[in-house]
Computed example of a mutant assay.
Amino acid sequence: MSLPNKPVYTGGCQCGAVRFRIEGALTSVSICHCRMCQKAFGAFYAPLATAPENGLVWTRGEPKRYRSSNHVLRGFCAECGTPLTYEAPDGIALAIGAFDDPASVAPTKQWGIEAKLPYVDDLAPLSSERTESDGAAPFLADLKSFQHPDHDTESWPPKDRT
């Protein structure tokens, strides 16, 4: 008997100290505009994808957690601060930006619109430039990223980080 194919997702924090693997379909992919999510992510909203029950495994390290309410824990990397989880009685959601392929995890719903910032819907038409086009930041010309790559590695960080 063959097992059905399951989608597999991987991801982790910016520094690579925490990595995860999800097997199975994501059960909810959304963004939340509530003020608590804005503060937890330091952003306009929190993009989150809920892992299937028993489908999440921490493959390197584990998030540190902060209790943001009587029902919710917020997981983040204790080394680099990357927001990673929203853990509630109905499941664990992971930050879409922490997935190795975030483009494959598209939101289908918005929550917490009572706190939606008034300019969020007006962002798309703003002038857009590539990172390296920022003439006010000449340091970008020789920038060397120490960010963990968007795939699993046997060990991290590499020895040469100069």
Results as ranks from 00 to 15, higher is better:
Glu87Thr: 12
Lys109Asn: 12
Gly112Ser: 11
Lys109Thr: 13
Ile113Phe: 11
Val105Met: 05
Ile92Val: 11
Pro89Gln: 07
Leu84Thr: 04
Pro89Glu: 06
Gly97Lys: 01
Leu84Tyr: 04
Leu84Ala: 06
Gly91Cys: 07
Ala98Ser: 14
Asp101Tyr: 03
Ser104Lys: 09
Gly97Cys: 12
Tyr86Cys: 12
Lys109Gln: 15
Asp100Cys: 07
Cys77His: 08
Ala93His: 09
Gly112His: 04
Pro89Trp: 06
Ala93Leu: 07
Leu94Ile: 07
Glu87Ala: 12
Ile92Gly: 03
Pro89Gly: 07
Glu114Thr: 12
Asp90Gln: 15
Gly97Phe: 02
Gly91Lys: 10
Thr85Glu: 11
Glu114Arg: 15
Thr82Cys: 08
Glu79Gly: 13
Ala88Asn: 08
Pro107Leu: 10
Gly81Ile: 06
Glu114Trp: 12
Pro83Glu: 00
Thr108Phe: 05
Ala93Trp: 05
Glu87Val: 04
Thr85Phe: 03
Ala93Asn: 08
Thr108Glu: 13
Glu87Cys: 09
Glu79Arg: 13
Gly97Gln: 02
Glu87Gly: 09
Gly81Leu: 11
Asp90Pro: 01
Ile92Arg: 09
Ala106Asp: 10
Leu94Ala: 01
Pro102Asp: 05
Gly97Glu: 01
Thr108Met: 09
Ile92Asp: 01
Cys80Gln: 05
Gly112Tyr: 04
Thr85Gln: 11
Ser104Phe: 13
Pro102Phe: 02
Pro83Phe: 00
Gly91Phe: 10
Ala88His: 13
Thr85Ser: 12
Leu84Phe: 02
Phe99Asn: 03
Val105Phe: 03
Lys109Leu: 13
Leu94Gln: 00
Gly97Trp: 00
Leu94Met: 01
Gly81Asp: 02
Ala95Cys: 13
Cys80Glu: 06
Glu87Phe: 03
Trp111Tyr: 14
Val105Gly: 05
Ser104Pro: 09
Asp90Cys: 02
Tyr86Asn: 05
Ala88Glu: 12
Asp101Arg: 09
Ala106Phe: 10
Ile92Lys: 06
Ile92Thr: 08
Ala115Gln: 14
Thr82Asn: 12
Asp90Tyr: 12
Ala103Ile: 05
Cys77Ala: 04
Ala103Asp: 12
Ser104Gln: 06
Cys80Met: 03
Glu114Ser: 15
Ala95Ser: 13
Ser104Ala: 15
Ala115Glu: 12
Ala103Leu: 15
Ala98Asn: 04
Ala98Gly: 02
Ala88Cys: 10
Ala95Asp: 05
Asp100Thr: 01
Pro89Ile: 04
Ala88Gly: 12
Gly81Met: 06
Asp101Pro: 05
Trp111Pro: 03
Ile92Asn: 03
Thr85Ala: 05
Val105Trp: 04
Ala115Cys: 11
Cys77Thr: 08
Ile92Cys: 06
Trp111Ile: 01
Ile113Gln: 15
Trp111Ser: 03
Asp101Phe: 04
Tyr86Thr: 04
Phe99Thr: 00
Ile113Met: 15
Ile96Trp: 00
Glu79Tyr: 10
Lys109Phe: 11
Gly91Arg: 12
Pro107Gly: 05
Leu94Thr: 01
Pro107Asn: 03
Ala95Gln: 11
Ser104Cys: 08
Phe99Trp: 02
Tyr86Met: 08
Ala103Tyr: 06
